[in-house]
Computed example of a mutant assay.
Amino acid sequence: MKDPLDHIGAFKTILNLQQTPDEVICRSFPATFRGVARVWFSKLPASSIENFKQLSDSFIRHFIGGQQHKRPTSFLLTVRQQEWESLRDYVKRFNKAVLEIDEADDQVIMTTFQVGLNNPDLIFSLGKMPPTSMTDLLFKAQKYMNGEVSLTAKGLMGKRKKDETNESHGKKRDRKDSYSETKAGKSSPNIPRKKTNFTLLVMPADKI
């Protein structure tokens, strides 16, 4: 039983619409139990419940520990697409995280989704034509997810990711080598050139 308060609330809403007597409610409520809730009810002492309020209070006290607590909206900022994670897997993971938080408006959800995004092509597209809603954003993302599927089917997805990584590392290495050469040139002392001695040849003029 994840949320006893929600379970009772849904049950009371249905019964209140029908103006059901308290006695009937008490007898109907156990019919909604499953698993551990049904076991709990079967172990209640006979004649220990006098009305629905007493039954619902006892039910809540027993199962309140299993109530699912929502995460703050800021939790979405911790969800980021990993370097080797596909866009489809990131979308699934992000949507799962959205279900774990308190209610948040569309704008917050869209912003946090884009903050965690690690797909240059989609980032550029969203920057050029900002989505109007989360549904619109996911519709745009679907195009790039389909593209990843096509690349994966051709065996090119892994190569593309690897090439992007190697290119990034190559640029860093080139900058580092350039810096090292410049530093070495500045710190090395001037080395004097070695003089070359020439031997003068003296010959008589008539022999030249």
Score class of each variant (00 low, 15 high):
1 M>T: 04
10 A>D: 06
16 N>V: 01
16 N>C: 00
18 Q>P: 00
20 T>F: 05
22 D>I: 01
23 E>F: 00
24 V>L: 01
30 P>Y: 00
34 R>L: 01
36 V>K: 06
40 W>P: 00
41 F>E: 07
41 F>A: 03
42 S>L: 05
42 S>P: 10
42 S>W: 01
45 P>N: 10
49 I>L: 10
52 F>Y: 01
53 K>R: 06
59 F>V: 00
61 R>G: 01
63 F>I: 02
64 I>R: 06
67 Q>K: 10
67 Q>D: 07
68 Q>G: 06
69 H>C: 13
69 H>T: 05
70 K>M: 00
71 R>M: 08
71 R>Q: 11
73 T>H: 03
73 T>M: 10
76 L>K: 13
77 L>K: 15
80 R>L: 11
81 Q>L: 14
81 Q>F: 13
82 Q>M: 08
82 Q>V: 11
84 W>K: 14
88 R>A: 13
92 K>E: 03
95 N>S: 10
98 V>I: 14
104 A>P: 12
105 D>T: 02
105 D>E: 04
114 Q>M: 13
117 L>D: 08
121 D>M: 05
128 K>I: 13
128 K>V: 02
129 M>N: 15
131 P>I: 01
132 T>E: 14
140 K>G: 03
146 N>K: 07
147 G>D: 13
151 L>T: 03
152 T>Y: 12
152 T>A: 10
168 S>Y: 13
177 D>R: 11
179 Y>F: 07
181 E>T: 08
181 E>G: 04
182 T>C: 04
184 A>L: 11
186 K>H: 10
188 S>I: 11
193 R>N: 05
193 R>G: 14
195 K>A: 12
199 T>M: 15
199 T>P: 09
203 M>L: 13
207 K>G: 07
208 I>C: 01
